[in-house]
């Protein structure tokens, strides 16, 4: 299939870039280094290590999806490789979707490679320690057991990476959609802005709902932002777990809803990108 041919080639070409390889190695090294963190005793160290690891993967994912995405189509036009492709029996939408999937494949491999290394290193660290004591009793009547087994595999880490993955799946489609009519530099900042604004979705929602302090027009504006900009906060799983004022719902339902949200949004963005690109001069 033509879409798959283009995706495969895009992926192969991207993965062979030195800059991406170097970046990946640095990110992996940081994850491994983060794991050697010891400061406050095992329990708190593990919490810090886990959030550090996820943050490294999050930031890497953000950088990779932006830097790969912004050049996917403009590079083909600048270097005129697009001419030999579109003069063959390839439809414009096949090209757009093929390029998107190629970029996505690159992003996926990078995120999951980091994710797997992270989870495996966590497991090794946990296994090496085996069991830990809970430390001195905190107060009179503390009846916790003296020692307990360290959890080797933490499923919430897998979930965290999955949610990181899906937010950059969504961001990649935003970048792709922008790239059919923006230069790479403009696209970089525009997509980054969308990501920031979209991550702050709860703020817009509460501003839009605040009838006392703001007028109708301003609230309408917040409402529009909240509606149009993809809600990246849907993927912010740690927020939900920490802040109790979010509705308490079942986790599987929350996760599947977020993934469905990403899929619908990505399809929409790709349709828009294909339509715009179809009438574009190359």
């Amino acid at each position: 299939m033509v879409i798959w041919t283009i995706a495969k080639t895009t992926y192969r070409e991207a993965m062979r870039k030195k800059i991406l390889q170097v970046f990946l190695i640095v990110a992996l090294a940081m994850i491994v280094l983060a794991l050697s963190f010891t400061q406050f005793g095992f329990q708190r160290d593990m919490t810090i290590v886990k959030s550090l690891g996820l943050t490294i993967i999050l930031v890497s994912g953000l950088i990779i999806s932006l830097t790969i995405g912004i050049t996917l189509i403009p590079n083909e036009v600048d270097r005129r490789t697009i001419y030999t492709i579109l003069s063959k029996p390839v439809k414009r939408y096949e090209f757009v979707i093929g390029k998107f999937l190629g970029g996505l494949l690159t992003l996926s491999v990078n995120i999951w490679l980091m994710g797997i290394v992270f989870i495996v290193m966590l497991a090794i660290k946990a296994a090496l320690i085996g069991e830990v004591s809970t430390g001195p009793a905190g107060f009179v009547g503390d009846v916790r057991p003296e020692t307990y087994k360290v959890q080797i595999f933490d499923p919430s880490m897998l979930l965290g990476i999955l949610m990181i993955y899906f937010q950059f799946f969504l961001l990649s489609a935003v970048v792709m959609c922008f790239s059919v009519f923006m230069t790479p530099t403009v696209n970089f900042f525009a997509s980054f802005a969308v990501y920031l604004v979209g991550s702050a979705a709860p703020i817009w929602a509460s501003l839009a709902a605040d009838k006392e302090k703001t007028g109708l027009l301003v609230r309408g504006f917040y409402k529009v932002i909240h509606t149009i900009i993809p809600n990246f906060d849907y993927f912010n799983i740690s927020n939900r777990l920490i802040h109790p004022h979010h509705e308490v719902r079942s986790l599987p339902l929350f996760v599947s809803e977020s993934i469905a949200y990403a899929l619908v949004y990505v399809c929409l963005l790709l349709i828009i990108a294909s339509i715009v690109f179809d009438s574009r001069e190359v």
Partner: peptide, 27 residues
């Protein structure tokens, strides 16, 4: 078919990979 002016191709590919790719586009 079309040969553009000063053509430029995916630089990490070999000529064989390039032709395989284009052959796939021609199905």
């Amino acid at each position: 078919s079309y040969l553009p002016e000063s053509p430029y191709f995916y630089e990490y590919m070999s000529a064989r990979e390039l032709l395989n790719f284009y052959a796939d586009l021609f199905r």
